[in-house]
Design a binder for these strands. Structure first.
Lengths: 188, 188
DNA sequence: ATTGCCTATGCAACTCGTTGCATAGCAGGA
DNA sequence: TCCTGCTATGCAACGAGTTGCATAGGCAAT
């Protein structure tokens, strides 16, 4: 389980409440590790009980109080241990790939609009990455080690999106070709 | 949930027992959708109860009997419905990306051997893909629609592995640079 | 005034997925 | 001979993750 560790990294980069963490998981970190607010609250309580994080109640006016968490010593130590453990092989769930193979037993044309929607959302994400790169890393020649590491992860995201876009274009071309010359005989 | 659908696709491509499906999920389909034998047996029983698949007991000598499943009409219909539904956004769990960002708060050098191990396993997978491509698709000019779709998914896998290898090289170069000129001051 | 949305946290119930173990016959090697 | 491993299926228990709902004050628009 690595949700604890993802939370620790996020808290080391910047302390915050459960709610704030949930929003970060919807944006930056969430590109690499998703989590709902329920999971986050539950895990934060466990981590606090284990001494991995420290909590401080912060009163706000006009808003409910919040508990601001920050990474504590034992949490840092646990993170260092985890870094040295081998990663368990990542489980992949690539639903679109399953659908494409499924299309062989149905109408390939039925998938086109779906794939187009994917293409658009990947194009939008790539644009957001590139925009974020310009905003957060204006000078690539003057990065400290934390920024270097954030940037290499971002580069991975950018390359992944570029590759995915090219592949989705390939998929679309294939589906369109099959839909055009298969007309009613796509099946069986 | 798409495990049902992945199983249906696999059974349409080739009927088989729960055990055989589990091995397929360890090999081909498993690149895009992982599952243990426990999940598969449970889901198969549910699918049989729902009439999605038909089972036939097959006696074998020298081996335990097996139940060979094949996709039934209602299963095909469910698959067609699913194809037309929009995909829910895929949840990503990219543990290595979390570790790389975590390395900023520890020793970046500690990650190098881990990333090297990843690199090797991705290189091996790419080689297996390329080998499988030559074996299963010797003549790319004469593919039926099912093979066309299988091949476009395979192309995605190949491109993903190539991109990943290039990125891991980038990560390794970054980690080595930080480990060399950070010596003990990587943190804080 | 009411409706809907945002911040902020949480309970309860559920499904999904993993792990450990059990059975059971057969084959091959130490 | 015993141990390991393969085929083949399954139970039981647990942990991870999701969904629906609840509370509760403030803000902005209708």
């Amino acid at each position: 389980m690595a949700l604890e560790h993802a939370i620790l990294v996020s808290l080391l980069e910047q302390p915050g409440s459960g709610y704030e963490l949930a929003r970060r998981f919807d944006r930056s970190i969430g590109r690499f590790w998703t989590a709902t607010h329920q999971q986050i609250y539950r895990v934060l309580r466990r981590m606090e009980a284990d001494g991995w994080v420290a909590a401080e109640e912060v009163a706000q006016d006009g808003r409910p109080d919040k508990k601001v968490y920050s990474a504590a010593g034992p949490g840092r130590a646990a993170l260092a241990d985890w870094l040295r453990e081998p990663v368990e092989p990542e489980t992949v769930r690539h639903e679109l790939a399953v659908k494409i193979r499924a299309a062989a037993f149905d109408d390939p044309g039925a998938l086109i609009s779906e794939v187009e929607r994917h293409r658009e959302s990947h194009a939008a994400l790539l644009a957001r990455y590139l925009h974020g790169e310009q905003r957060d890393f204006p000078d690539l020649t003057a990065l400290d080690s934390r920024q270097e590491l954030q940037h290499v992860v971002l580069r991975g995201g950018i390359e992944f999106e570029r590759m995915t876009l090219a592949w989705l274009d390939d998929v679309l071309a294939t589906l369109r070709r099959l839909a055009a010359d298969g007309r009613g005989t796509a099946n069986r």
